[in-house]
């Protein structure tokens, strides 16, 4: 189980690879029909890529984590077929008002170069 004590600022937690395939795009469009831009990734799928990496790299997690804040910088929108690698780094951790706060950096790079970057703050449950 990954607990608050596990995290160390500056530590690379791991990487996750994903191909932006048509199945993922279709699943996204089924939920958000407006987001049909042919083979181009909709903006909001940065979250899907980031959260998949989070789910894959940071496990097992305690139940009940809460997503508190999020920052994204988008540099370009990948296209279908591109392989994306997201690396997750612990940026900081603190206890505020008795709650464990962990901030994670998420850098996503594809075959065409850097695509987007995220910073995610989670209230870690244990």
């Amino acid at each position: 189980m990954i607990t608050y004590e596990t995290f160390s600022p500056g530590q690379v937690m791991g990487s996750s690879e994903a191909v932006l395939d048509t199945a993922k795009l279709q699943a996204w469009r089924a939920l958000f029909p407006e987001d049909d831009f042919g083979g181009e990734m909709p903006h909001g799928m940065v979250a899907a890529i980031a959260m998949r990496a989070y789910a894959e790299v940071l496990q097992p997690r305690p139940p009940g984590n809460v997503h508190a804040a999020q920052h994204f910088d988008l540099f370009r929108l990948p296209r279908a077929g591109e392989r994306l690698t997201t690396t997750i780094t612990c940026l900081e951790k603190e206890i505020r008002k008795g709650r464990f706060r962990v901030t994670l950096g998420m850098d996503t790079v594809g075959s065409e170069g850097p695509a987007f970057r995220g910073r995610m703050t989670v209230l870690w449950a244990a």
Binding site: A69, Q70, H71, L74
Partner: peptide, 17 residues
């Protein structure tokens, strides 16, 4: 944002839930 600005890049977004 996409409706307003199309696919113009770069773009940043910071939010609190």
């Amino acid at each position: 944002l996409r409706r307003a600005f199309g696919e113009a890049m770069p773009i940043s977004l910071e939010v609190r839930f």
